[in-house]
Simulated scan of single mutants.
Amino acid sequence: MKFAIALFAPPHAPASRRALRFAQAALAGGHELVRLFFYQDGVHNASGNTVSEQGTLDVAAEWRAFIEANRLDAVVCIAAALKRGVLDADEAARYQRPAANVQAPWTLSGLGQLHEANQLADRLICFGGQA
Rank of each mutant, 00 (worst) to 15 (best):
A81Q: 01
G112D: 09
F66R: 03
R94K: 06
C77N: 07
Q54Y: 06
W106D: 09
A99T: 07
S52F: 01
D88T: 02
A81F: 00
D58I: 04
E62G: 05
A81W: 00
I125N: 06
L120H: 04
G112P: 08
F66Y: 03
L87H: 03
Q54W: 07
A74C: 12
S52C: 06
A100P: 08
F66K: 04
A69N: 02
V76C: 08
E53T: 08
D41T: 07
R84H: 01
E116R: 09
A80K: 12
E91P: 00
A69K: 03
V59C: 02
E53W: 02
V86T: 02
D88I: 02
N49D: 10
A79I: 09
D122E: 09
E91T: 09
R123I: 14
E53G: 05
I125V: 15
G110A: 12
R97P: 01
F66W: 04
F66M: 05
D58H: 03
D88R: 02
A80C: 15
V75P: 01
V51F: 02
V102I: 11
A117Y: 09
Q119T: 09
W63R: 03
A61K: 05
G48H: 03
E53C: 06
Q103P: 13
A46P: 05
L82E: 11
C77V: 04
V102C: 11
G55P: 03
D58R: 06
I67S: 12
T56W: 13
D41N: 07
P98T: 02
A60I: 11
R94L: 13
E53V: 12
A99V: 13
N49K: 14
A92R: 01
R71N: 08
I78C: 15
A74W: 09
V76D: 03
S47H: 01
E62T: 10
A46L: 05
A81R: 02
Y39D: 06
I78K: 10
D73T: 08
Y39Q: 15
N49M: 09
A121S: 05
L72T: 09
W63E: 00
G55N: 10
A104G: 07
S47N: 07
E68D: 07
N45M: 08
S47C: 15
D90S: 15
S52A: 12
L87T: 09
T56G: 11
N45Y: 15
T50C: 08
L57N: 04
Q113Y: 14
V43G: 12
V76Y: 01
G48Q: 04
